[in-house]
Design a protein around this nucleic acid. Structure first.
Lengths: 197, 197
DNA sequence: TTCGCCCGAACGATCGTTCGATAACGACAG
DNA sequence: CTGTCGTTATCGAACGATCGTTCGGGCGAA
């Protein structure tokens, strides 16, 4: 039998509201009303408000597993950096709520941080650090920077663009049409820096 | 007459608790109990829970004004980048709660975001973008990157190090003794990139 | 009839705020 | 010096509102 629509509708609505105001900022009454469902449906389908939140979190962070496919497909270190940048842009574009849960959990971790969030973040950082380390072994990357730190710097550059968008929307265009241009700019900065040759 | 200690104690306790769990995650009962004060003191001194939160926010973001002194003291673009990096490291070290309010407001903005948070963030980005632009005019920085975007990339690199610390604490050392080393690494990456020459 | 799915009233707990009482203290008049 | 008054800081009980959960029942398909 098909699992009813109520379930999916609740997940969708909860994704938006939780991302906007956090776990404690939304009540189950507002949640269920926005989903056109009854209050008790949240406890019925998800075992309570926290259960719904964890279901949202799981669906949000599922996409991070894609990094493994990228790593399998791409072997060249520089190309790996470019793929990571493009993948991250697309990830945020496809899912405008992701970054809110991402940083919300990093700064105000809930009970699900250590089981649902931290593992997938670490996986990405470790994989990128390994790619950079391989680049160093190949003589393509300078060896006087720590690979993990370089991976963090890369992730920071691109994620911060979306993180700061609420504050900088009148300073810089956040239109998706600029994405590929930005990918190239970040790639340039990361590999060659902003210094004139 | 001296303003009582109750006021200051409430501010200190609220800073920690709000940073850990957000505006909606803490009750005034827990707040006042942790401060050793009565429940009614919050409404009495700050006009309510939100008033206390805004007082905390104001005190947190006051330090961003220091960027103006730095800009007055430093004229060389590269030196300005280095000063920004060192200043940001010290800012986060001196105040471990700052980044939580910073990102919490960026992802789950409260009513005070547009008046207390956004203006100071924009100021820093604009000042750094101008410094980078000047570096381009001097021929020290390449001209094919957008100054504002470069400023965002710089801010992203260093802020993300602290933002991700909860997830990456067993991947990389976050000891303050490494700070100067990290400043130099970020400076290197930003000005020269990770590419081998 | 049975079994998922769903409803909404009801419950106890907790929320933020308000209010009357109290104590300490300086100013001032007698 | 002393008694009174107004101000300020603090308390805790009480209030109405809202919180998340539970529960008895209704509905439709098997």
């Amino acid at each position: 039998m098909e699992k009813s629509e109520c379930n999916k509708k609740l997940l969708d609505v909860a994704t938006q509201l939780f991302s906007e105001r956090g776990l404690h900022g939304v009540s189950i009454r507002e949640l269920s009303q926005a989903a056109g469902a009854s209050i008790s449906m949240i406890s019925y389908h998800f075992g309570g408000k926290e259960g719904l939140y964890s279901a949202v979190l799981q669906r949000q962070f599922a996409c991070f597993a894609e990094i493994h496919e990228i790593r399998e497909r791409v072997s060249d270190p520089v190309e790996m950096v470019e793929s990571y940048l493009r993948w991250t842009f697309r990830r945020h574009r496809d899912n405008p709520y992701l970054l809110r849960f991402y940083t919300s959990e990093l700064t105000n971790p809930t009970a699900f941080f250590s089981t649902l969030v931290m593992p997938v973040i670490d996986e990405v950082i470790v994989i990128m650090a390994k790619a950079i380390e391989e680049g160093q072994r190949q003589g393509r990357f300078r060896e006087d920077v720590d690979p993990t730190n370089a991976a963090l710097a890369l992730a920071g550059m691109v994620n911060y663009f979306f993180l700061s968008s609420l504050a900088t929307e009148n300073l810089i265009s956040h239109s998706p049409e600029r994405d590929e241009d930005l990918v190239q700019q970040y790639l340039k900065i990361f590999t060659s820096g902003v210094g004139a040759k």
